[in-house]
Design a protein around this nucleic acid. Sequence first.
DNA 1: GGTTTTATGTCAGTCTTGTTGACTTTCCAA
DNA 2: TTGGAAAGTCAACAAGACTGACATAAAACC
Lengths: 170, 170
Amino acid sequence: MAEGSGSSGQRGEDLLFLTDEQLRKGIEAMFFAYRGFTADPDRILEKHGYGRAHHRAIHFINRSPGTTVNNLLDILGVTKQSLNRVLRTLIEDGLVESRVGTRDKRERNLFLTESGRAFEEELSRAQRARMRAAYRSAGPEAVAGFRKVLESMMDADLRRHFNKLKDSGP
Amino acid sequence: MAEGSGSSGQRGEDLLFLTDEQLRKGIEAMFFAYRGFTADPDRILEKHGYGRAHHRAIHFINRSPGTTVNNLLDILGVTKQSLNRVLRTLIEDGLVESRVGTRDKRERNLFLTESGRAFEEELSRAQRARMRAAYRSAGPEAVAGFRKVLESMMDADLRRHFNKLKDSGP
DNA sequence: GGTTTTATGTCAGTCTTGTTGACTTTCCAA
DNA sequence: TTGGAAAGTCAACAAGACTGACATAAAACC
């Protein structure tokens, strides 16, 4: 809608990928794809009585064993009270272990237990399978573009966290 | 974790983009990017006392004026009770109009009112700005890949809805 | 014409996950 | 050593999802 269709009046070059229509389709693609992205883990989580918040905590504890609650808060972008409820149930259920920090005893270092790692694997396997199928059918160049756009879409502070995680490339 | 790192034992070709590590990074990229994707509209919505659910309804009513409640339910993947709560407030607030269907009087055709369209523009402008910046910095080839991967990631029925929306290309 | 199905709306109750506010323990620095 | 800041926990509340039951109207079927 509004007035023009292009974002800055294309100058003869092929800026057609920046038209409002193309941007709207991109927005919708994100919406629909994210639904698929979470669908498989959601089904598994439900069987165990957990929600997406549990998945996120488990995922990032697995990726950064020994991480602190505060670091997790930064990554997940929720309040500590919200995260705490999730962590409490995971600890009670024996999926996560919370050890008092050595340097600073106010901190808690978080680890997955053996069954925590097993559950993480189950969730991750399902999500990776979908991702792998999408990657394979789209091909390596498409995947590189996919990653490039997603990284540009992140807020700067989240991109920092993202890059700190393993395998950001040499 | 688990045993191997590759999905199917790479055969010398460059299947390195299918390693579990790469897939995990893709999963995390989706997570972080989606946060950025919703951040700007979320701020606007909050000022008006609405949530993401309202945004989704407004977006798709704008994209398919006259759509029915049932169609919206399919697209959004929520229960009718959930959608109804959202629609009721939008109608009360004069952003959405619900007209009894002409062919089938059981149906309700949904439209944005003038102020509904204005609000949609405000939300969309913010979200498009972020998307445009990401697209521009990544470039056209990357955008094509981005779209390709996202489409492969969708569930089949959602991809159908996605393709029915305007401008899926000639 | 009468029955069944479909489309929508509503009421009540629950669950997950987010929020704010208040509190404890620990650390650190003036 | 004491006062403030930081990390984490507990309690209460709100938004928004869900299920289930039920109501109304219109279309479809037989």
